[in-house]
Amino acid sequence: MLKDLHIQNYRLFEDFKMKGLGQVNLIAGKNNTGKTALLEALRILESKGDLSVISNIILERGDLNRHDSESFSTLFTRKLIHINRDASQLTIELGDTIKLSREVKESDYPTYFSIVERGNGSPVRNNLKTPTDGQYPNDKAVYIPFSNDKIRISDFWKKVVLTPLEDQVHEIMRVIEPKIIRLDIVDNNAKVRLENEINPIPLKNLGEGANRMLIIALALVSSKNKMLLIDEFESGLHYSVQEQLWNIIFEYAKKWNIQVFATTHSMDAVKSFFYVLEKEQNEGMGKFFRLQRSRKGQIESIKYDEKDLELAIGVKLDPR
């Protein structure tokens, strides 16, 4: 489990620290304080700088540029980046920990990246295609973006269907609709069979929240011993189910050793997180952080433990 995090020169983080991370971490903050960027950095960290992951992040942000050096410099800011261009090789060094390079070809695009060196200086050959070639990013963490449309639930489902994990997914989904008997996903479309119904119905008929719940359920059961990153926890979820969902997340995080990082804008999400954190069996498991611009303009994190959060919610001093 990650205990502390230190990010330098990634997007808007100059020198950013988070200390005392928990098993389940909820991250709030105003717009443009780096909540999504934090999840990106964790993806990169978990994949040890895998280029398919980095490329996927650039692609998702719509920053993909014909010149990779420019795309990369939208992520890795300031002087730690060194771009060496010679006839055949483009090398980007991220500080002294990760060095990336790609071959420069005539056709040039889509491109081929490889990590040439890592940390201790030992060379690593790990050629990967960019996702523009139809490949998936080689994430080690499980990542849920805020927009449900961007998620290919079929890919999650393939690994879950006809395994015991399927039962777990059904169980989680019954929080939203107790009548669900089973579900199936074909071509990214989920259908459910409900008690006393002859024909299956599309999951989306159960509301926007059902879709989000399914995504989180699939991600959760796929995260054993991994990191689970959820961008905008509350997206589409009615507040009444948020507390139940936190219950489930805390339960799985504990029994399957999942470290969860979720971002939020919503006070309901913070409150429901706190109510679940307050339960005896979850004591000390969760941490709340607010990302903010300090008075000097740098992004920093403020940690709240249970006691701090209880007080802030109690006196209505908004912790977000």
Binding site: Q292, R293, K307, L311, A312, V315, L317, P319
Partner: peptide
């Protein structure tokens, strides 16, 4: 509106004071 907050006791008041100082 509600600019005065009562924390409950002195320890909680001090904690809240710390939270306020952390808030830009």
């Amino acid at each position: 509106e509600n600019y005065i907050r009562s924390a409950g006791d002195v320890d909680r008041a001090i904690n809240l004071f710390g939270q306020a100082l952390n808030n830009p």
